[in-house]
Design a binder for these strands. Structure first.
Lengths: 147, 147
DNA sequence: CTCATCTCAGGCTGACTGAGATCT
DNA sequence: CAGATCTCAGTCGGCCTGAGATGA
């Protein structure tokens, strides 16, 4: 049997490669976060709050690529853990102002370490220079360059 | 509101970038294949059969990164379209020997064109040289280099 | 009135697990 | 016996839509 011999048509296809790479990396990082009792989206939301300060749920969703409707339960969970606070925005009573707590910042640091370690595993086949180039190319693709 | 400003912790994280990039590329390519009445996995399986000849379902799955249990319905569909044939392997009666048909090769050519066009859309932000470098890095990550 | 926000209910898909039957 | 293969049933998570209530 020929185990890992993928068709050249697929191996030359960026979208197929991206899918496979994303799948594996997500599995690795996801497993690390699971053993820390967390989830990828937890990390995303805490990172956004830490960097940009208090925000509405809709704004968090736009920044992190998380759907508005999944954000509800997500904020519930993180608030139950004491990692963030949700209160009504006094200036716009439609919004929930979500803010990170001190415990949330500590949690973010823990998760960042776990993610970083898992990342190293997932990218093991690449040298440091290659990882840097990969990140730069993906950034150009996903968020554009300097624009 | 700050629409697309993703947290730097995420934008610096390869697994997050891979996820975002894969999601967008898959949407674009998937839509193109849908309008051709096909699916990403159809393209994968036809490409594998065209390149390596008749194979068992399990072997196809390993090559294309498709689960053994999803392969059943997939081969059903492609066989119903006349793009491949499934018969019992005389040398190992556990296996279904799957072979591509002439119609399957024609279909593969059609789909390859559709995929290639969609790919260009998905990678529009990158120059040709950058696409080449991205593919090389992803290959090293997914299938290893010369090993 | 229009638009944004939060929330809930639910659909769809893709990746996966478990188990049984068959065969090497 | 162990191990591979095909098949089916069903789970789980991620992405998404629609609609209602509230408010700018």
């Amino acid at each position: 049997m020929e185990p890992g011999t993928a068709p050249t048509r697929l191996v030359g296809t960026p979208s197929w490669l991206l899918n496979q790479a994303a799948q594996r990396a997500t599995r690795t990082v996801g497993a690390a976060l699971t053993s820390a009792g967390a989830h990828r989206t937890h990390f995303s939301v805490l990172a956004a709050l830490d960097e940009y300060g208090p925000a509405s749920q809709a704004s968090l969703g736009r920044r992190c690529g998380i759907d508005r409707s999944d954000m509800v339960a997500l904020v519930d969970t993180l608030a139950a853990g004491g990692y963030l606070e949700r209160r009504q925005d006094p200036d716009d009573r439609r919004r929930n102002l979500v803010s990170i707590t001190a415990a949330g910042r500590g949690r973010l640091r823990e998760l960042a370490t776990a993610v970083s370690d898992a990342q190293d595993d997932a990218l093991a086949p690449l040298t440091a220079a290659e990882r840097t180039r990969l990140v730069a190319l993906l950034q150009a693709l996903v968020v554009g360059r300097g624009d």
